[in-house]
Structures are given as C-alpha cells and as structure tokens.
Simulated assay, not measured.
Amino acid sequence: MDNEQHSISQALGVTADFDAALEARRRIDFLSHYLRQASCRTFVLGISGGVDSLAAGLLAQSAVSELRADEYDARFIAVRLPYGVQADETDAQKSLSVIRPDRIVTIDIKPAADAMLDAVIAEGEDLVEPDRKHFHLGNIKARQRMIAQYALAGSTRGLVIGTDQAAEALMGFFTKFGDGAADLLPLAGLTKRRVRAMAEQMGAPPELVLKVPTADLESDAPLRPDEDVYGVTYDDIDNFLEGKAIAEPARQRILKTYWASGHKRALPIAPFD
C-alpha cells in the first residue's frame, strides 16, 4: 500500500483487521451508548432493500432490544420511502421481515419530490439541464427521504441512522444533505464486503447479502448498478481500502473520484477555515 492509499484508508476509518462478530458487537454498543447519552428514545432509518440498510437495521433493532432489556425505553422505527412504486419493493419487504423492527412507517415521497422539481423548473427552467433532469430529480428524492426521516425523529425524540460506509464514502456516492445526512453512521469504516459479512453474521439471507447494489435514484435508469456508475467494481474499491494491490486504471479512477468528491465529505466551509 502506498502512502496516498494508506492515508485515504485511515481517513475513512478502515482498519487492517476485521472480525464480523466483533464489529457487530462494537457497533451495537456504539448505538446503545449514544442513544442513552443523547437522552433520546428512538432510532429512525430508511430501509431500501439493499444490504447497507439491512445491516444498519439489524444493528439498530439489536441495540434497542438490549436497551429495553436493561429497562431503558427505546424503539426502532424502520421507514419505507418509495417514490411511487419501488422497483425492488420485494427485497425491501424481505429486509423488513429479517430485521423485524418495532415499527414500520411508509411514506411515499413522489408527490413532494415531483412538486419540488416542478417548482424549480417553473422559476428556473433555463438553469436545469434537460438531459440531467432525472439526475436532479434523483437528488431531490434523496433529500425528501431525509426530510421525512427527520420529521419522524423530531416527533419521537429520535436520532436518524445513516447507511454510509467506507466504499461509498471513498467514491462520494451519496447525495449531499440527502442520504449523506444523518446523526449516526454505524457502518462507517466498513468496506462493502465487510458490510456483507457483518449482515450475514447477524442472520441476513444470502439473496439479500449478495444483492447487486443500486441507488435506484434516476427514474430513467431504474436499478442501475452502482458499479456502472463508478466505472470500477466494489472488489477494486474494497481492495484499495484494505491496502491490496489493484490494476492501475482502477486505482487512478478511484483516486480521481475521491479527490473530486472531497466537498461532499467535508463540513460547510467558513471564511476562517
């Protein structure tokens, strides 16, 4: 591993060693401790049908179950946030059946997302590139989903859990102030393969653990695989983060994307920073 690769992995919290059971235990304890410390009562998390939200949901439900066993009033609210009808709704429902959350809330974000895009176009149509309309709508969808989660958290003394992990953080593959906004990131520092391993260790079935990852944000390209967007595979990304050698074209693609997306991982910049 060269110095640049090492420093990026360190910055994103990726460790050399990994044990799925130990990591699950450590992250459940992290969630439990923080909920108590913040004097909050609920975790709120959007469940998409992908392995990241599945793993985070399993951690959250385990944490609140243990808190209740210790006589602390806590619950987990799993939120379904479809845009109309979700293409992989079956997988989302399978995830919920595995997690068995205390409460399930379903909120259709389509009316709000469409209304926002229409309002933007009505006043600034010349500012919205026609060939990127679905891309812009995808970002609006992600932000509307977070609005809904914070509305629930705000009314239940809750904290919003995010699903960001090291592979997506490396590639800047999240919407700024959308799915990139959260109070807690229990999957931080995990590569994609480590998220899968932890989900499997917690009892997730193979068909959900090994499901092809997709953000499913752009309406004109439903269920487009993440790797098509990246131009590199998750194996390349995970190997990079874990300090393993990868082909030079993949390494250069990863580095270029990482540096170009730096603003998405940073706090808002002030004049005195």
Score class of each variant (00 low, 15 high):
215 A>N: 07
31 L>V: 07
187 L>H: 14
214 T>H: 12
95 S>V: 07
67 L>Y: 00
188 A>W: 11
3 N>W: 04
208 L>F: 00
215 A>V: 09
122 A>N: 09
72 Y>W: 10
109 I>M: 07
39 S>C: 14
164 D>T: 09
265 R>E: 03
122 A>Y: 03
200 E>W: 07
1 M>I: 11
120 V>W: 01
215 A>S: 14
161 I>K: 05
123 E>R: 14
54 L>Q: 02
130 P>A: 01
78 A>H: 04
105 V>L: 15
142 A>D: 04
26 R>D: 15
173 F>V: 05
69 A>E: 08
243 G>R: 08
235 D>W: 08
185 L>G: 07
202 M>R: 01
38 A>W: 03
146 M>C: 08
132 R>F: 12
264 K>P: 03
199 A>L: 08
104 I>E: 08
75 R>A: 10
170 L>Y: 01
104 I>V: 14
212 V>N: 10
20 A>T: 10
118 D>V: 03
178 G>I: 10
195 V>H: 06
173 F>A: 13
238 D>V: 10
25 R>S: 15
114 D>A: 11
42 T>A: 15
60 A>P: 10
17 D>I: 02
42 T>Y: 09
106 T>D: 04
42 T>K: 13
96 L>K: 00
249 P>S: 06
238 D>H: 07
253 R>C: 05
161 I>L: 15
146 M>Q: 12
109 I>Q: 02
189 G>H: 10
164 D>Y: 05
140 I>C: 00
129 E>V: 13
54 L>M: 10
144 Q>L: 13
147 I>R: 02
170 L>N: 01
247 A>R: 15
86 Q>N: 07
26 R>V: 09
211 K>M: 04
252 Q>T: 13
87 A>H: 08
164 D>N: 12
